Every structure is written in C-alpha cells, then in structure tokens.
Amino acid sequence: MGLFTKDIKTLNDLFLHQLQDIYYAEEQLVKALPKMAEKATDKLLKQGFLTHLDETKTHVQRLEQVFQMHDADVKAVDCPAIDGIIEEADEVAGEIADKAVLDAALINAAQAAEHYEITRYGSLIAWAKRLGGNDCAGVLQKTLDEEKATDKKLTALADSKVNLRAAS
C-alpha cells in the first residue's frame, strides 16, 4: 500500500499507513545510528548518536504500543524517504576524507532524519487526536519531543564547534 494508492480511503487508513512508515524508519535508524557513531570523530557527536540510539529503540517500543492501542497489527512498510536519507548519508560519509568535515556531514544527515521524523510524528499526533485517540497522541508526543530535542542538540553541537572545525 503506497501513500497515493486507492488502499488509503479514510483518515484511519492514512494514520495506519504512516504509523507503519515511521515504524520502518525507526527500525532502519536503529541499524544506522551505530554506524554513524562509529564514523564520528567528535566525542560529543559519537556519544550523541549512541544516546539517540537508545532513545530510538524506545521509539520503536512506543510505536508498537500505539499499534496495540489502535487495535492494529505491528507492521512496517518500506519508507523510501528514510532509505534515501540513510543511503545519501552513507555515500557522503564515504567520500569525505577530512574528519572535521565528515562530522559536519554526519550532523547534516542526522538532522535530515530528525526532520523527517518530526514531520511524521506531528501529523500522526494530529490525526490520532482527530480519530479520538488522545491516548495514542500522548505516546507519540513523547517521541516527538525527544526528536525535537535531538535536533536542537545537533544544531548546538554544529554551531558551537563542529562547523567551526570543518571550516578551518
């Protein structure tokens, strides 16, 4: 079932599809974050990736909880957007020899993933509320808050030192 197929007829169908999409995305990020941490040379960036890996594992668990609360099977659907973000990050990281520039690129890639997640969670929360699922919305809101906090931490790290090192 693709986003623009006839399979999505109702807001509930759309909600479930996007829930499956973000579930897939979070699962892929659980695989990608250790690789990003390994490539990072800045100690705070490396630790940030590992901390967010733990959070992301919790995000997967919360999504499983939302599936159950919504009386739906836990299921992932391919998410070409997150696959593309991760693939691009791998390609760019493989092409950069300067470690300071690599760290800046890794932050950029991580923020691309964060912004994708922020968009998805924001919509899911709005739809859950519209569908009468305030309990689901509350669970999703915890994750959205964490994604926004991670994005802010990445920006602060980039602005405070990583981008400065990359520019010198």
Rank of each mutant, 00 (worst) to 15 (best):
D83C: 08
T143G: 00
K142N: 01
V139L: 11
K152T: 11
A156H: 04
E27W: 08
K148P: 02
D83S: 15
I85T: 00
L33E: 04
K35E: 14
F49H: 01
S168A: 07
L16S: 05
L3K: 12
A105Q: 05
Y121A: 02
L33C: 06
D7N: 13
W127N: 09
T5A: 14
L140T: 11
Q111N: 07
K148I: 01
A166S: 14
T5C: 03
G132W: 06
G122I: 03
D159T: 10
D103A: 06
L124V: 06
S160H: 05
R62S: 06
E38N: 10
S123G: 15
K43I: 08
G84T: 01
Q18R: 10
D78E: 14
L3W: 04
G84C: 01
M69E: 10
A37P: 09
T41M: 05
W127V: 09
Q141E: 13
K152E: 15
A72V: 09
V101W: 03
Q141H: 11
L144D: 04
A76V: 09
P80C: 11
T56A: 00
Q47G: 02
K129C: 02
Q28V: 04
Q141L: 08
K35C: 08
L14S: 01
A166L: 13
L45D: 13
D78L: 11
I118V: 07
I125K: 09
A37W: 05
K39W: 02
K43N: 13
L140N: 11
P34F: 05
D7V: 01
T155M: 04
E88K: 12
N108A: 15
A137E: 10
K99R: 14
V60M: 05
A126N: 09
I96F: 06
A112H: 06
Q20C: 11
D159Q: 10
K129R: 14
A72I: 06
D103Y: 05
G94T: 09
I8S: 08
H70A: 14
L131N: 06
L3R: 13
A81F: 03
A100F: 11
D7I: 08
K142F: 02
L102E: 12
T150M: 12
R62G: 02
V66H: 05
K9E: 15
E27C: 10
L29D: 01
K161P: 00
D135V: 01
D151W: 02
Y24W: 13
G2C: 04
V66A: 09
V92Q: 02
D103T: 07
A109N: 07
S168R: 08
L44I: 09
D21F: 09
K39A: 14
A25G: 01
V60H: 04
L63V: 02
D54H: 06
